[in-house]
Design a protein around this nucleic acid. Structure first.
Lengths: 135, 135
DNA sequence: GTCCGTGCAAAGGATTTGCATAATC
DNA sequence: GATTATGCAAATCCTTTGCACGGAC
């Protein structure tokens, strides 16, 4: 895996966390959720370790951290492709999308103001089809 | 002021906080920063009150809360006009902007996925002209 | 006078850290 | 064997809350 390329030792917590994130590619998990899933998987590591591993993975670019709304970060594997997020405010479901026009427009806006753009974060919040059906 | 319209009593902390936010229209202040500025202004209220007032103001739409990066929320007056933010990752300076094309495109994207869009949050991060000059 | 607002200190959630032990390379 | 990881518990940061008192209406 890429763990070694990143200069990190190959340990059980790191392998398992990467695996969990891989299996949950659609979702975006919090540290706590990862912790819980690992336990179900008979892999019981401390929360502190989860946080440490996630921070290291983020630092070397293996995972991305997001801060939707309040109350904690969520993480997803970084597959190298940039994308933005559409988040359901009722059930938390997340859809990913990419829009070239928006990407370019952002570059222009930064340029106009004299900024050198380094990154951006775009979240669209709404109610997903499933939750609309419920109400 | 609008404090009374919101069903809130007119008290010193509320008036002062609104004033501070008004004077700092360009910036986006954290609760802690507001607390400090109030002290300099010889208006010494507890942090708990600042948080309470800000939460109330947010609830009635007088202020908006933002969560750039890590470590706490920042607040700004809500003048009713929606806008997005361009944030300098070195000095924290914030510029506001509005782009119609991006606004519309977001609506389309939500629609395509079957979401009913309720809001969005777009931050462009970069280095401002001043900080570019420094390095 | 009633109800709402405030201060204080304690509680809370998410995340980090110090230190001794245990694992990888 | 040296270095890096982990677990545990305590610590930290930001924010909220319970309770008794004081101020607005």
């Amino acid at each position: 895996v890429d763990i070694k390329n990143a200069g990190l030792k190959l340990t059980a917590p790191r392998i398992k966390i990467l695996q969990i994130l891989g299996e949950s590619a659609v979702e975006h998990l919090s540290a706590e959720e990862i912790y819980t899933r690992l336990k179900l998987d008979k892999a019981d590591f401390s929360l502190a370790t989860i946080y440490r591993v996630l921070a290291q993975f983020e630092a070397v670019g293996l995972v991305m951290r997001h801060n939707f709304g309040e109350g904690g970060s969520v993480f997803e594997l970084n597959n190298g492709e940039h994308h933005d997020h559409l988040v359901c405010i009722e059930c938390g479901q997340v859809e990913e999308f990419v829009d070239e026009m928006i990407e370019k427009k952002q570059q222009h806006i930064a340029q106009e103001k004299g900024f050198k753009m380094t990154s951006h974060s775009l979240y669209i919040f709404g109610i997903c089809p499933k939750c609309q059906a419920k109400s």
